[in-house]
Design a protein around this nucleic acid. Structure first.
Lengths: 335, 335
DNA sequence: ATGACCGATGTAATCGTTTCCATGCGCAGC
DNA sequence: GCTGCGCATGGAAACGATTACATCGGTCAT
């Protein structure tokens, strides 16, 4: 592979001049510039980014650590992030934490080793040593969707609380009184927020949230199955289930199918995060939709601000309820 | 951030010795090694991979270019690839081509600029200059799932033809005679193979495949909708539709819902690539499943073989039909 | 006692860039 | 005809690692 020296030789100039042309610095005679450019294309020269980054101490690369690529919400987010970053001239390297703290830290470390310019992360729940270190080191960093308490890092997310309140009102209006929830990991910020919002909305309607109706999940499909199994082992099972993410909702459906139960006649179902398939499931599933695209774009904007020396603040967008048949029929969903 | 010099200074040795310890080369006194190691951890030193790679001319990084991250088949593949690579001590950088040739070439180029050790690609259809150049340059490269004719690059994939044959037999047995197919992009190798297999299977049953029953798609949801729309504008619409990927199947369902048509009573539906949601759609969708995990693992194995100087051959796995209710009832699907 | 050898370590070149500083040249001002 | 200035360019020092080669005691065989 040709290097800058080869280009310089062929153009009959020094490497300094080639570099100047490549980074279009002013002060190169037009004719020289042209000569360099033809040499570049004749040799189909491409600068070695490793060397460049080593020298300039910047990679024009962002790291994105997400909790689970297989979760459509996150793949959509990743997609949006990559698009936005590319528009701003950055590349993105994605690390999939698979909801595991150790894997997450592994990725954070390798990304830092690669000297990425900034880190976008939707942290798995729990205490991440690597993330704390990175924050302390002053690595430009932005949280998206999820966050870690006590770290002074800008956060871009959607506040789902009003939508959760709407959801509870919707369920109540449809006659449901025994509402259950399936949570994410214990220390998950988003999950906790959703649970609290759920509980306080229930209170407004004078409904209790017994412990038995709180299914401990981990944002993965299998935990949705397990929680559902437990609910239906109860003497009085819930008449509505709210899964705090879409994969657990899938688990709920799988388990209901095994148990031979029907939605919504036997039990209602709603999920956090809307995905295209929810329209075509049997029945279509009521969900709370986040503005995923915008989340991604805003997060990148905040991060590039930080990277480029500007300041960045947190951003809170809003989520909204999309009522479908999985909670029963009412005037809004019947057609 | 601390560099190797700082470590050397603190341990009272030269940088050469530190490097030897770090890459555990033999010939370092045990006591010196210990001293270096403590210096490393006291400074929480991490080697700069840019510098290292520049010098050694290897990054221990694989590039993966997939056609569409939003397609669950590819995200699952990406996930498998990353897992396998990590086990072999490689990182993976993913590029999402979004079924666009220019975007694909953009990613191939930036990956090459990053001096990845090898390239795993599921090429978008059409002639890719960047890919051809890379192959000519001798970049270790392996195709997965899709390929480009005329390039001598190992290919890891699943042969879907027998399964397509099974599918046609299944549809025929259920009484369907007007079978339609929705293809991928014109030059797509996988799509073409699926179409050919479909057509020849139809012939075996003495059925024609009129042009009007070939919907030109592009592996994206919207094209599934459009093709369906056209099918039902026909004087005699098909009684079964085979979508050659899962996103187009989603598009078919969306359009059918708009048209107020029901599956399978009005029309049957089957798709290539199985995804978890197919079990819970209304009705569950008959699909051809690929061994995605194994595809990813085999592809990485082939690529690392190439990267590490061994030779690698193509691998062909097989796909299989999973019959569900979307094609109508028979003894296998009725429960 | 001498030299060959070996084990542990250091010195310095190198990878491919960017960029600071020096250099040479033409030209305007005096 | 100098001086000084600006413009275009080149030389060489970094960036942070790896590694070929040199060095330096010490041991051992002769």
């Amino acid at each position: 592979m040709a290097g800058i020296k080869d280009v310089a030789a062929r153009a009959g100039v020094s490497v300094a001049t080639v570099s100047r042309v490549l980074n279009d610095h002013s002060g190169v005679r037009e004719e020289t510039r042209a000569r360099v450019l033809t040499a570049v294309s004749e040799l189909s020269y491409r600068p070695n980014t490793l060397a460049r980054s080593l020298r300039t101490d910047q990679t024009r690369t962002l790291g994105l650590v997400i909790s689970d690529v297989l979760n459509p919400f996150f793949t959509e987010l990743a997609r949006a992030v990559e698009d936005a970053a590319r528009e701003s001239g950055y590349s993105v390297i994605i690390g999939n934490a698979d909801e595991q703290l150790t894997l997450q830290d592994h990725h954070v470390r390798t990304l830092l080793d690669r000297r990425i310019d900034g880190l976008l992360v939707s942290p798995a729940s729990g205490d991440s040593v690597a993330l704390r270190e990175a924050a302390l080191l002053g690595i430009p960093m932005v949280f998206v969707d999820r966050w870690i308490e006590g770290l002074d890092v800008p956060l871009v997310r959607a506040d789902g609380r009003p939508a959760v309140r709407d959801l509870v009102a919707h369920l109540y209006a449809l006659g449901h009184r025994r509402l259950a929830i399936i949570t994410g990991p214990v220390a998950s910020t988003t999950s906790n927020e959703r649970v609290r919002a759920f509980r306080s909305a229930l209170q407004e309607h004078g409904l209790p949230l017994p412990d038995a109706y709180i299914g401990q999940g981990d944002f993965q499909t299998a935990s949705g199955r397990r929680a559902t199994e437990r609910f239906f082992a109860l003497p009085e099972p819930p008449d509505a289930i709210f899964a705090t993410d879409n994969l657990m909702a899938l688990g709920v459906m799988e388990q209901l199918r095994r148990l031979g139960l029907r939605v919504p006649s036997d039990v209602s179902l709603a999920a956090f995060d809307d995905i295209p398939w929810f329209l075509h499931t049997d029945p279509p599933i009521t969900a709370i939709a986040q503005p995923t695209q915008e989340l991604g774009h805003r997060a990148v904007a905040a991060l590039t601000d930080l990277v480029e020396g500007r300041s960045a603040g947190s951003v809170t967008l809003s989520a909204h309820l999309i009522a479908r048949r999985s909670c029963g029929e009412d005037e809004r969903t019947r057609r």
